[in-house]
């Protein structure tokens, strides 16, 4: 690991100031320290934000939930309100990593974790995300876990989070503070697609710190998180579907769906949801939604299987959700 300066922030403005001057935020550190040991990331300074007062989960005035950015993945998964009213989020969190990691990993850090593309991790390989302009070894390489939606000719990395997929389906918003003040944005607007600058992953400016995630009131209907992976536990998603579906009188009345393992960000396509509204649950209905989801899907060899797998996973998720919601 390269040497770095370490400072502990006492206030969010102190943290923002230090980060604006070049320091990297340290929260749980489970991804950052891993990358620093490999020298994939080599920050000259860390600003430790773990002592900031961002550890609470609170009800909002709108009957939703405000989740402090430093709430650990374990505490969020186990929170009574989340278990009772946002089970898709509990399930997504519990499907990710291990208890040891979830006890350290934070809400804000989970959103900002880096891809697990093997070429991003291999400092001897070409990678436009790690080292802009060097190319992308994944295009012709071992791209089994990589993206089939939203990628570009410069990068096919996937966003690895399960938590963010559930939050996207729930319509979460992200609250930030920075040197220029704070803002609130839709989780979907936090991320940037790779285009020709895959090294720039979010819209956050230098020094801008995620302070909370806000969930709207619990949605009507059944919730589930279906994750398909290479082994039964402790593996990233090949495909995952976070779903919230309501059914009345034999017709789907609302559907909120987000997808993991397919794209450089937790993926949501409102046209997929619109196609389901008013329809009776059936394989034809689900396949029509999958057609829309996968219309622009593009495989790169090893990951071609993800396209039919995504269709089958969506079918399964919708069938189970519609049965439970009916």
């Amino acid at each position: 690991m390269r040497p770095f300066d370490y400072a502990r922030a006492d206030t969010t403005s102190d943290a923002a100031t230090r980060a604006a001057a070049g320091a990297t935020f340290l929260a749980g550190g489970t991804n950052l320290l891993d990358l620093m040991k490999l020298e994939v990331m080599a920050p000259e300074a860390l600003v430790d934000v773990t002592r900031l007062d961002l550890h609470e989960v609170e009800a909002t005035d709108e009957s939703g939930l405000r989740i402090g950015a430093l709430v650990t993945n374990s505490d969020l998964a186990n929170h009574a309100t989340v278990r009772a009213h946002y089970p898709v989020l509990s399930r997504a969190l519990l499907s990710g990593a291990t208890v040891q990691l979830r006890n350290k990993a934070t809400t804000g850090g989970n959103l900002l974790q880096r891809t697990r593309c093997p070429y991003f991790y291999d400092t001897a390989a070409a990678c436009n995300k790690r080292d802009p302009g060097t190319g992308c070894a994944a295009m012709e390489g071992r791209n089994r876990i990589l993206a089939v939606l939203g990628a570009s000719d410069h990068c096919i990395a996937t966003h690895p989070s399960d938590m963010a997929v559930a939050m996207r389906a729930l319509g979460a918003r992200v609250v930030t503070e920075g040197p220029d003040g704070g803002r609130e944005l839709d989780l979907g607007d936090l991320y940037r697609l790779p285009g020709d600058t895959p090294n720039i992953e979010t819209v956050l400016s230098d020094g801008e710190l995620i302070t909370a995630v806000i969930l709207p009131p619990p949605p009507a209907g059944a919730q589930s998180y279906v994750k398909v992976r290479d082994r039964a536990s402790y593996a990233f998603a090949l495909v995952s579907v976070a779903g919230v579906v309501a059914v009345e009188d034999g017709r789907i009345t609302s559907a909120n769906l987000a997808f993991g393992g397919l794209a450089p960000m937790p993926w949501r396509n409102e046209a997929v949801e619109t196609a389901l509204i008013g329809k009776a649950p059936s394989t034809e209905t689900f396949d029509a939604a999958a057609d829309i989801l996968l219309a622009d899907a593009k495989g790169h060899g090893d990951n071609d299987f993800k396209i039919p797998l995504a269709r089958r996973t969506l079918r399964r998720a919708l069938r189970e959700l519609c049965e439970r919601a009916a």
């Binding site: 370490y6 502990r8 550190g29 891993d34 430790d48 773990t50 374990s74 990691l101 350290k104």
Partner: peptide, 13 residues
């Protein structure tokens, strides 16, 4: 009281 991976934790933190 909580289990963690001590390899991914800075002592300073």
């Amino acid at each position: 009281g909580r289990r963690i991976n001590s390899c991914l934790a800075l002592a300073a933190s």
